[in-house]
């Protein structure tokens, strides 16, 4: 196959504002996912991570809208796709897992049926066959006593169990890409790790790519091949896991990593940065991080930096990247 599996280019998503012109929550965003790759997308709350995920699914939350750019799946733009065709792509070729598994499940339908429905709709299976598929999927997501759990209702399940069901629904049709948007944040820490490993293993087994969206940098360190750091609707740094973790170049990435450090003094750096959150207007003419950047210089206020390569496979959106 030539070209990336998912290719988001120059994406711009705007939300209307009561007081002024529309606000770009995502602007000029590029993101590529190769087949079989696990890409971690990190950034603080409000960076636009979820809006990005929903844009790829063509489900931008109201009243936002995509005003520019493309989001391609194998060269086919999802943003201009007809509703009918989208219906066949969603769940079958791209699926999504979010943070609130119990809310995602239909409360009045046995969970096994909800998995089987996917097999009937997307794989064209019959009643009996789809039930078998669902049972097999329950075993795959390591639910104990799958025959009994098939008939269980969502309210009878724990959060972790519900998330396994959601994963089963998302993966039962063998999608090419799974978007996990904060998929573990509602769970216990120990369960988080289990779910994450399960998700990674299943994705690997099916040769699915994965976009793992999280606020927790630690999570990405374990499972991702590639990391993209998002800040105020832009990718500020992207690179292989090793490169980003060992040689972070953008001041924001450094701050973010410091925030998750075991070293108290490093963590203090973040709280200082956070206190100084007087962010610049999401204007076009300055670096979006300039208000919080400890290394900001005059040029950062005058000229918006572009995402540029600082080492092979490692990009940063900064005029003065930290290079060691």
């Amino acid at each position: 196959m030539n070209g990336p599996l998912v290719n988001v280019t120059d994406l711009r998503v705007e939300f209307p504002s009561l007081t002024g012109p529309d606000v770009a929550v995502i602007s000029g965003l590029d993101l590529a996912i190769e087949p079989g790759q696990v890409v971690g997308l990190v950034g603080e709350a409000g960076a636009g991570k979820t809006v990005l995920a929903r844009s790829i699914m063509q489900m931008v939350p109201e009243p936002g809208r995509v005003t520019k750019g493309r989001a391609e799946l194998q060269g086919e733009d999802l943003l201009t796709m007809s509703e009918r065709r989208l219906q066949r792509v969603r769940g079958a070729r791209i699926s999504m897992i979010t943070a609130n598994p119990r809310g995602e499940l239909n409360p009045l339908l046995p969970v096994g049926e909800q998995i089987a429905t996917m097999a009937r709709v997307h794989l064209g299976q019959g009643r009996k066959e789809s039930r078998e598929t669902a049972r097999a999927m329950l075993r795959k997501v390591q639910i104990s006593d799958p025959d009994r759990r098939y008939a269980a209702y969502p309210h009878e399940l724990s959060g972790g169990m519900a998330q396994r069901i959601v994963i089963a629904i998302a993966l039962v049709c063998g999608p090419q890409v799974v978007i996990a948007d904060d998929a573990t944040s509602g769970l216990d820490v120990t369960v988080q790790a289990q779910i994450l490993m399960l998700l990674r293993d299943l994705a690997r087994e099916q040769n699915s790519s994965m976009l793992l969206i999280t606020r927790d940098v630690g999570i990405t360190a374990h499972v991702c091949d590639r990391i993209a750091v998002m800040h105020q609707g832009e990718i500020v740094e992207a690179g292989d896991r090793q490169a980003v973790f060992l040689r972070p170049a953008h001041p924001y990435t450094i701050m973010l990593l410091a925030a998750f450090s075991h070293n108290k003094r490093l963590r203090a750096l973040w709280s200082h940065a956070d206190a100084d959150k007087a962010a610049p207007a999401r204007g076009e003419q300055a670096c979006s991080y300039v208000g919080r950047c400890p290394l900001a210089q005059a040029r950062c206020r005058a000229e918006k930096p572009m995402l540029r390569m600082i080492a092979p496979g490692h990009e940063a959106r900064c005029h003065f990247p930290v290079v060691r």
Partner: peptide
């Protein structure tokens, strides 16, 4: 507008099925 309906749409279930499940609820 609930999460489960959105998830059904996101999972590519046909509109008729999504409507039926919503009505049931």
């Amino acid at each position: 507008q609930s999460d489960f309906s959105r998830f059904e749409v996101m999972s590519g279930l046909p509109r008729r099925l999504v409507m039926r499940h919503a009505l049931h609820n």
